[in-house]
Design a protein around this nucleic acid. Structure first.
Lengths: 208, 208
DNA sequence: TCATCCAGTTAACAACTGTTCTCTGGAATT
DNA sequence: AATTCCAGAGAACAGTTGTTAACTGGATGA
């Protein structure tokens, strides 16, 4: 079913990806609402009007970036929460996984953190929808756990949102610590680990 | 010691406040990094060059807005955490207080949520510093509680950050629910209450 | 092979940006 | 009363912006 794209379609997708990459780089030092169309085309090395062949507006480009940044992350989140083992091990693994993802894709993480509450409505909406999906997936995994017996669906979703928000806060802290010394990242790891631990303890005594 | 300002100084402060107000309004639909100097002066009804009499740049204006939005909030946070009574009552009161603040100052809350991870470094730094202060103040209040015996300073600060971040997340949710029906705000209240409850439970069993 | 398609180009548009320098008129100081 | 000060005005600057229209030339499909 994997139809080899024609030369034309392939070249178009290549240019489109160049737009996304250039935009992501430019967005490291500004917000999407100040990103100019000409600014992006200049960075790609293409005429300003070429932009319209791929996106209706910079907001449209932003929505595409949300999909790139979060779309491929769902499998990872699923397996993170569902991995078996001691809860302490699971926490450590989750924190390391976040740290690794931030180190591997800092610009993507920065973009999501920045535009989650940013000045472009369609982008905020796209991020909100993806995070909602994350929360529901986390909830589904939590429901499998033997600890979840007696929990209402509402409470499970409440906990899932707590975990998802905590994941974003932690990612943002790792991002700030990226340029600094290893010691700084170690501090974030310790902080995030203990916060997750406290939440997990609360989870364990929820039904008392 | 309250020296009555001269006509001149008074008028200057009035204009300065007009800049802050106009900027805050404009920032409801965009980020600071896209806010133009001329845009603000136009909204105030003053010549573009007048801007420089008050601020070096829009980033400078942003820092002033951070102080306006968060500077006067410290007493409130202090009393919120320290109020006596059942922990369940305290949680309910804290959530209501957040809801009230968001309803009273939505633009300020939106500005902080947006620019906390926004594209203007000095503003991010100013917000970070204020939130650090909040966390330390919350920690100081937590330390007074009998429940805090046996807790290390590090763990208290960890918990304080958890509360502060949770406060911001809740404020942001109330903001999104502002335009919607009362029912929506009720949903946020229930969610935030239960999340705080879970954290508080975790706190109670931390030393087990 | 030939007609069609379409990603990217070129040129031009009115409108906008931040910043400079010079000026003004009323408040503040002496 | 005479002088200094200074918040704001005015005009001009070189650059920038998004969007339009008409185009080119190589890939595509008949």
């Amino acid at each position: 079913m994997s139809h080899t794209l024609g030369i034309r379609q392939a070249q178009k997708q290549k240019t489109r990806q160049a737009f996304l990459d250039a935009a992501l780089t430019l967005l490291e030092e500004q917000s999407l609402s100040s990103l100019g169309l000409r600014e992006v085309t200049r960075a790609v090395g293409v005429a300003p009007t070429a932009f319209y062949r791929h996106f209706r507006s910079t907001a449209d480009l932003g929505v595409a970036l949300v999909d790139e940044a979060l779309g491929s992350l769902h499998p990872m989140v699923r397996t993170t929460v569902s991995t078996t083992g001691d809860s302490e091990e699971r926490i450590a693994r989750a924190v390391e996984l976040i740290a690794g993802h931030v180190a591997a894709h800092p610009a993507h993480v920065r973009f999501i953190a920045r535009e989650r509450h940013g000045g472009v409505q369609p982008v905020r909406e796209a991020i909100r929808a993806q995070l909602q999906r994350f929360a529901e997936e986390v909830k589904a995994e939590l429901a499998k756990d033997p600890e979840a017996v007696g929990w209402s669906d509402d409470d499970l979703l409440m906990l899932a949102h707590l975990y998802v928000d905590q994941m974003l806060i932690t990612a943002s802290l790792f991002l700030e610590a990226l340029e600094g010394p290893e010691e700084e990242r170690e501090r974030v790891t310790r902080l995030a680990t203990r916060q997750l631990r406290l939440i997990t303890i609360g989870r364990g005594h929820w039904l008392d």
